[in-house]
Every structure is written in C-alpha cells, then in structure tokens.
Simulated scan of single mutants.
Amino acid sequence: MDTEQQKRYARQIALPGIGPEGQEKLLAARVLIIGMGGLGSPAAIYLATAGVGHLVLSDYDRVELSNLQRQIVHNTQDIGELKVASARQHLQLLNPDLKITTLDYQLVDEELHSQIQQADVVLDCSDNFSTRFAINRVCVKTGTPLVSGAAIGFEGQISVFLPDQADSPCYHCIYQDNGQEGDSCSQLGILAPLVGVIGSMQAVEALKLLLGIGDKLCGRLLLLDGLHMDWRTLKVRRDPKCAVCGQVSHENTV
C-alpha cells in the first residue's frame, strides 16, 4: 500500500484481525456482484470503499426512474444509462484506485462459469429465482463462496453458502427449483432502506470471507421483518439428496 491508501483505509486497518496484511488481501481480491439494483448498490458501494481491488459488476438493465427510490448507486441523470456503467462511474468517484469490470449482458453457460470461477466471492444480488438457481449451481461446481440476499415488501433475508465445506447447504437445499418465479417488487413493493440493510450485510459477509475472520453466516438463514423490526435466525442443513450439491464429493475438503 502507498501512503494515500494507508490514509484511506486507516480506520479499517486499525481493526483487530485486519491490519495492513488484511487490507492487502482485500486489495488483491476479486468479487463478482450479479445485479446492480437495490441490493447490489449498497453492496458495491461498501466493497469499493473498503478497498476490494477488483469488482466485477453484472447487469444488463438500464436505470429507470422507479429504480431511484432504492438503488442508491444511480442518480437522476443516469436514467436511460446501463446500470453497470452508471455504477462504475459512481464507484470510481468514491475510490479511483479500484479496477472495475462491467458486464452489460446476461451471464449464462460458459461465461457464467468463467466469471464465477475467477471470483474469490460471488454476491447474488439478483431479483429472480432462475438467476439465483443458475448462480448457485455454478458456485457449487466451482467451489466458490456465495453470499445470497433477497428482499421484498418489508422483509429481507441473507445467507452464505460455502461449497468447499462438507456440511454447508446450498441455495437449492433451501428453495426447490420448480421453474416458477415468485412475486416481484413491482407487484408487492419494497421499502427502500430494507434493501440497503440486506445489501450492506452482504458486503460485511463478503469482507469476512475475503479476510478469513469472524463467524460466517453459513448454515444459517437470517430473516428480517422490517415492519416489526424483528430478526430471526433459521438453522439450515445440507440436504444429502439435493439435486445440486448432494452428489458433490468432499473427500479432499480440509
């Protein structure tokens, strides 16, 4: 780190378990964020300001007026722009030292596999089940840590999946892929700060994974009822019959 970086990250470097060595880990890390909407916005902002060296932003939508109620990485003047381009501009103003790669098309098949395999951590900030299941399948196949968040109405949830750990469930262990999509924010609405809370927590979990500190949210599904400000933690177990991770071998897992 140079002198400017030491000043920029001073409050983070001062934390026990991080220090200069931990900050160097962050600067060398690559994180893939899929979805630059309500969840991806705060997650990307905090990962950028924390000094994650390479952010890969994936989203093929454009900024709309209705997005601005909650998607805080975008501004009014960005309406009509690609979300990844708008986000990159904002993030580089916050931290010009970072490398930011933008993918303004849908990640599928080999490209999805390649991007996830290159990432140290993947953040699922998408808004539909088909994307979440696809991300989960590739993360299980590549052994890539996955931080999954979701929010709708007054409710949010977050969990972490660690495919390289024998006892870790995957997303499919909790939710079955029946080919149907759930309700959307346009149908049921969303409280703006709620996605900020969940997205920020995704950033926290990603930083912990990159730094190798703290207790991970693996094997636990954290649920937030924002209307009554009630937090619940559900223990989730790996399903040995899971169609996605049930047949994965962990013989070499330490």
Rank of each mutant, 00 (worst) to 15 (best):
L55Y: 01
S58R: 05
S148E: 05
C218I: 01
G196P: 03
M201R: 14
V63E: 06
A150M: 00
L107A: 08
T101D: 14
A119G: 07
V147C: 02
K241T: 08
I158A: 05
C173V: 03
A10N: 11
T131M: 02
A206Q: 05
K208W: 06
H54K: 08
Q12D: 13
C185M: 12
L94M: 15
L103K: 10
N136D: 02
D215L: 08
N128Y: 08
R70Y: 08
R132L: 07
N252L: 14
I198H: 04
T3A: 15
R137M: 01
P145S: 02
Q69S: 10
R11P: 07
S249L: 09
I79M: 04
H113N: 04
A151Y: 02
D177G: 08
L112M: 13
L227V: 00
E4C: 10
V56M: 06
L223K: 03
L26P: 04
L32I: 11
L32V: 12
K235H: 07
E181F: 03
G51A: 06
L94Q: 15
L221Y: 07
N252S: 13
A29M: 13
M36R: 14
L91Y: 11
V52R: 00
P42Y: 12
E111C: 08
D97K: 05
P240C: 11
L224H: 08
G51N: 06
D78G: 01
G226D: 03
Y105H: 06
Q106T: 03
Q157K: 02
V204G: 13
P16R: 11
A28Q: 14
S41P: 14
K216H: 07
V195I: 09
A150K: 00
S114M: 04
Q202N: 06
